[in-house]
Structures are given as C-alpha cells and as structure tokens.
Amino acid sequence: MTDQTNVKLRLNNSELWGGLIGLALGAFVVWSGLKLRLGTINDPGSGFVLFYTGLLMCVFAVTIIVAAATEGGPTFGSRWKDARWTKPLLVIASLIAFSFALNPLGFLLSTIPLMLLLLRLIDPVRWSLAIPIALLAPLGVWWVLKRLLLIQLPSGILEIG
C-alpha cells in the first residue's frame, strides 16, 4: 500500500470520526460547566458536575481516537452493511406514538400497550410472560413515581390519584 492509500483508509475510519465527535461534544460540556461556575469540592457550583463529566467524556473520546489511529477500525460502509432496519424503525414509531398518546390516555394506558408491543415484537417473549410484565412494570413505576416520589404523571382519561 502507498502512503496515500493508507491516509485514505484512516480518514474513512468510523471509530476515528466517532471519537472526534465525542471529543467535540466533551469539550462543549466542559466549556458549559466552566460558564456555569465550578465552585469548590465543599461548595460546588452549578457547573461542577457538568465540567467533570465533560472531562471524563474527553478522556474516553481520546482513548477511542488513539485506538482508531493506531489499530485502525471499520469503515462507514462496513458498519451499515447488512443492517436490518425494521426493528429500530418499529421502536422509533412506537415511541413517537407513545409520546402522542401519553397526555390524552395517561401514563398507564399508554405505557402498558407500549410495553406489550416491545415485548412481543422487538425481542419476542411468550404471552404468558409478556402480559404480566407489561401490566406490572408500568404499575410499579407508576406507584413509585406517583405515591412515593410524589411526581405528577399524566392521568389522561383514567384520572387516578
């Protein structure tokens, strides 16, 4: 391989670009934390956690960039080859439908069908397991959020609570 081909392969490295985007995002988070005031460890400011989270993001991004530059990585084309789009698109469509149904139907009446749909179609679970999970998980989350944490949830047509 010539040097020109080697450079071309490195520029098509999807992990390198992912690391660069992560580094830019981490730098933005660091900058946002600095803008909000850091404070001290005993009296943290509103940007304290944001700043250190951004630093951690930058460290992770740099390790990805170094690994991609030294070891290489897959190209963009190989990442998307043989991709199956039906399940991700079904999840996106069901989450969009859930977001529209949440206010009018309420938390429980919109979450239970969403759970049932995801349990049966995305990673198929048998009905005898899917129905109890789809009923009990939203009811448990509703009880914790509404009764213990006193968080107001959309009640919709049920008007529970």
Rank of each mutant, 00 (worst) to 15 (best):
L102V: 09
L36W: 02
G45W: 01
L105T: 02
G161K: 11
D123C: 04
L108E: 07
K87L: 14
V7K: 12
A27E: 08
M57E: 01
P132R: 10
D3K: 08
S32H: 01
V62N: 06
R10Y: 01
L105W: 01
I21V: 15
Q4Y: 00
D82H: 11
F28D: 06
W17E: 00
I160P: 14
L114C: 12
F76P: 06
V141M: 09
A130V: 02
A27F: 00
A101E: 01
E15S: 13
M115W: 07
T5M: 10
Q4L: 08
F100T: 10
L9P: 04
T40K: 03
G140E: 04
C58V: 02
L38M: 13
Q4C: 04
G19K: 04
G54Q: 08
L23C: 09
V91R: 02
F60E: 05
G72S: 12
I112E: 06
L89A: 15
E159W: 05
L117R: 04
F98M: 05
K81H: 14
P154S: 13
F107V: 05
L50V: 13
A137D: 05
G140Y: 03
N103T: 12
V141Q: 08
I92H: 03
S99E: 07
L23P: 02
Q4E: 14
G161M: 09
F51P: 01
L89C: 12
W142N: 09
L36I: 06
L117A: 11
K8A: 13
A24E: 08
L129W: 13
G54A: 07
P74M: 12
K81M: 11
L129M: 13
R120K: 12
A137R: 08
K81C: 05
T86A: 15
W143P: 03
L34N: 01
L153H: 07
A27M: 07
E71I: 00
M115A: 15
G45K: 09
R120Q: 06
I122D: 01
P104S: 11
F98Y: 15
T2I: 09
L129Y: 12
V29Q: 05
V7G: 05
A101F: 11
E71K: 15
T75M: 09
I133E: 08
N12K: 10
G47A: 02
I21H: 02
T2F: 08
F60T: 10
S110T: 14
K8F: 03
N12W: 04
D43W: 00
I122T: 10
Q152N: 13
G106D: 09
D123Y: 10
A24S: 13
M1V: 10
K87T: 13
D3S: 10
F60C: 15
C58N: 04
Q4P: 01
S94C: 11
T5H: 05
W143C: 12
P138L: 07
I160V: 15
E159M: 11
L139W: 02
